[in-house]
Each structure stands twice: as C-alpha cells, then as structure tokens.
Write a protein that binds this DNA or RNA. Structure first.
Lengths: 124, 124
DNA sequence: CCGTATCCGATAGGATACTG
DNA sequence: CAGTATCCTATCGGATACGG
C-alpha cells in the first residue's frame, strides 16, 4: 500500500503529518535540527552555522523545539552565561525522516525547477 | 552516519530540505497529495475530502503542485466543466517520504504532547 | 463546476534596542 | 553571551462575490 488518505485509517496519517509540519514546517526549525544533529551547540554557534536567521527567530525556534521535548537546554551559570542546546532522544529520531525528505528534494530538485520554468513560461 | 549538517556536503541536504518544506510545508498541500494518492480526483471531491479548506486556498495549493510538476491538471470541456487532478510520477514519489514523516508523528505524538504540557505547566 | 478577484484579519518574521 | 520587548512589513489564509 502506498496511499495517504485512501480510507479512514490513513486519514489519521494525514493528521499526524499535519502536526509534524506544524512543528517543523516553519522557516528555521529544520535547520536547527540539522545543526544540532552533529552534537550539542551554543546559541551563538548555531546562529552563525545557519546564517541569515535573526536572533529573535532562532530563539523562537529553539523554544518551540524545547517545548516539544525535541531539544534540551542547559544553562551554565557562568559570566558571561553559556547555554547549550542538544537534541533529545526523540529529537534525534526525527533526523532520519527528515533525511528521507531531503534526499527526495535533492533527487527531484532539477525536475521541479524545470517544471516550474515551463509553467511560468506558458503563463507569459 | 546520521547527521544533517555536520560537514559541507550535508549542508546541501539542509538546503534541499528547506526547499521541500517551502513547497509542501504550507497548511494544505500535503493533504492534497494525500487525497490524490488514492487516484485522480475532481476539484469538488478533493474539496470535500479535505474539509475545512477554503475554495481559494485549495486552488492555490493545486496551482503550486501543478507548477512544480507534482500534479497534472486535465480539463474536460463539458458543461458544466469538469477538471481532474492526479499526481504525476514525481508527485507519487513524494508519498513515501511523507509517509515516513507521518509515521514518526504518530509514534511520537503522545510524547510530544506530554512534553508540551510539562513545559507549559512550568511556565505558570 | 471551476476559477479568480477583492477585502480583511491573523500571524510570521526581520531590525533594533535594551536587560542580566 | 543569551534573552526579551517593540515595531513594522509581508505573507498566509478565510469569506465573499462574481465570471466563464
């Protein structure tokens, strides 16, 4: 079987999928997961690694991940303060599904860009 | 290996992933893919199957998918007009990656909801 | 039946500046 | 260094109505 919403049971799959996208479908969250997949990182390190993300949005993305239990936040009460973020077990379990999607993207990027160009050309 | 952005090569993965989410990360697109995964459907049928989507947003979602070559649109010049949408080969190839994500969501939904509740409780 | 246009509110997201 | 608050803009998305 390879359908997502053929029957009642798979309708549930769509809901689950929608919830996942609600969590990681924003502009920066998956980037954060990607950066943290290589190990614990400090705020500033993440910030530089991603590049282009505003201070504010990175904070929000990290809060969201922490709230959902995908990321652990550890504060070292030093001066200046040091805060480390790391993926939790469940956070790490998200990497493979995301990799699957990324692979699909790399495989089909060219075809999609071409289709898009053709579509836009027809639209004059 | 199980990292997303450890080195330069995998940074590319993140870009690909970001592009995929740009395409399917909106509120309704994956629902449409889900509905169409069971075969060609007319506009109104899709509209009813999803439920809750506005006429306008469904049109936009379908346009986007058509533009990217994930969906074929066929117009039957009858009166009243009949328009059928179906996944293309590349569109169907997206189903499995999405299923992987959906499965992750179903598996971890409970844990995430709990973590969220705990986080919100602490925040008073 | 299908598509588009218009209007409107809600939210995402950037820039900046201020605290500890 | 890390987090928060404020302001402002652009985009998302719903409701409605009209055209083919």
């Amino acid at each position: 079987m390879s359908t997502l919403a053929a029957d009642e049971e798979t309708r549930d799959e769509c809901q689950a999928l929608a919830q996942v996208l609600d969590r990681v479908g924003d502009k920066w969250t998956v980037m954060v997961v990607g950066v943290l997949s290589s190990g614990p990182q400090r705020f500033t390190t993440i910030h530089r690694s991603i590049g282009g993300v505003s201070h504010r949005m990175l904070t929000l993305a990290l809060r969201g991940l922490e709230r959902d239990g995908l990321v652990n936040r550890t504060v070292f009460p030093t001066i200046p303060p040091k805060v480390e973020y790391e993926l939790t077990e469940i956070g790490r379990s998200l990497i493979d599904p995301l990799m699957t999607l990324a692979t699909w993207g790399r495989t089909n990027r060219r075809a999609i860009d071409d289709a898009r160009a053709r579509f836009d050309a027809k639209a004059d």
